[in-house]
């Protein structure tokens, strides 16, 4: 469960700063995009040269052009399965994050639920979920359900931990203001606690944007007749390595796109966090 521990470690180091520049880099600084692109091109060129020289067996690492060729041959198939995995991953992403947030809100208002459910949630995190995937398949069948379940499982905890922190992160002064205005608990939640937790929530969303694809693909390895995980196992057994790498590439691009959307959503939904920064530099 390296994935989970890493996710928790990341969520622990909460970060207000450091998020803004990413959003800005995407939108308004061509250099920030061009520089890594140039590095990527150089790496690809070296890779191609290395593969062409015959120093590395194409079975171990096919050349970039061979991978591109795989898209030309099996593109339709690859995209169909990628769409299937994306559906699983995003369902898990949405459900898991909603579950995490809902639990955090419940814990905030009910001490009893926090004391009884939180330890269970933490214990659940310790369950090696992928190892019990065969059992999940027995319970939920061979379709999307067990994959979504695994994804939800890996996604909800970072959200729970971050949201719990975020919901308590409002300044004492701000809470005092709402108190002197005689605000109701619901107004306090909607007007202060949730907005104050936005940077924390996006922290969790960024962690799970990539984790949800890993979870879905790993769950597909166990048993599936569709999805990128299934495809990787299938092509792997046929030694069609360019196709395997093409599947990996699609998975990477899609999960990066989801991550990018989360970053853009943050800049859009939390302008107060980014707007005070100077545009230049």
């Amino acid at each position: 469960m390296a994935l989970q521990t890493e996710a928790i470690a990341k969520s622990g180091s909460l970060s207000w700063p450091g998020l803004g520049p990413t959003a800005r880099a995407l939108s308004s600084r061509p250099r920030a995009v061009l520089a890594p692109l140039a590095v990527l091109i150089i790496v690809l060129a070296l890779w191609q040269g290395l593969a062409a020289s015959g120093a590395i067996s194409p079975l171990i690492l096919p050349s970039p052009t061979a991978i591109a060729g795989a898209f030309a041959i099996d593109g339709g198939n690859l995209f169909y399965h990628a769409a299937y995995t994306t559906m699983e991953a995003l369902s898990g992403f949405v459900l898991g994050n909603l579950l995490g947030l809902a639990l955090a809100v419940a814990f905030l208002y009910s001490d009893l639920s926090r004391r009884t459910v939180y330890p269970l949630a933490m214990a659940a995190q310790a369950v090696p979920i992928v190892a019990i995937a065969p059992a999940l398949i027995l319970w939920f069948g061979n379709g999307m359900a067990p994959k979504v379940f695994v994804t939800v499982f890996l996604v909800f905890f970072p959200m729970l931990v971050n949201a719990l922190r975020g919901l308590r992160s409002a300044d004492a002064e701000v809470m005092e203001l709402l108190y002197t205005l005689s605000a109701s608990p619901r107004q306090e939640l909607v007007m202060v606690r949730l907005p104050a937790s936005v940077p924390f929530l996006f922290n969790a969303l960024k962690i799970s944007a990539c984790a949800c694809f890993v979870a879905a693909i790993v769950a597909e390895w166990i048993a599936a007749d569709r999805g990128l995980g299934h495809l990787i196992v299938l092509y792997g057994s046929q030694y069609r390595m360019p196709q395997v790498w093409a599947a990996v590439l699609i998975g990477t691009v899609v999960s990066m796109a989801v991550y990018g959307l989360v970053v853009l959503a943050e800049a859009r939904l939390a302008p107060w966090l980014t707007r005070q920064r100077p545009i230049s530099d």
């Binding site: 002064e173 005092e176 203001l177 002197t180 205005l181 936005v198």
Partner: peptide
């Protein structure tokens, strides 16, 4: 306070940063 008869302007002039 619950009858909302007073208003307090605190020393920190507290604002909600997201509004």
């Amino acid at each position: 306070r619950s009858a909302r008869t007073f208003a307090l302007v605190s020393q920190q002039s507290t604002m909600l940063p997201w509004r």
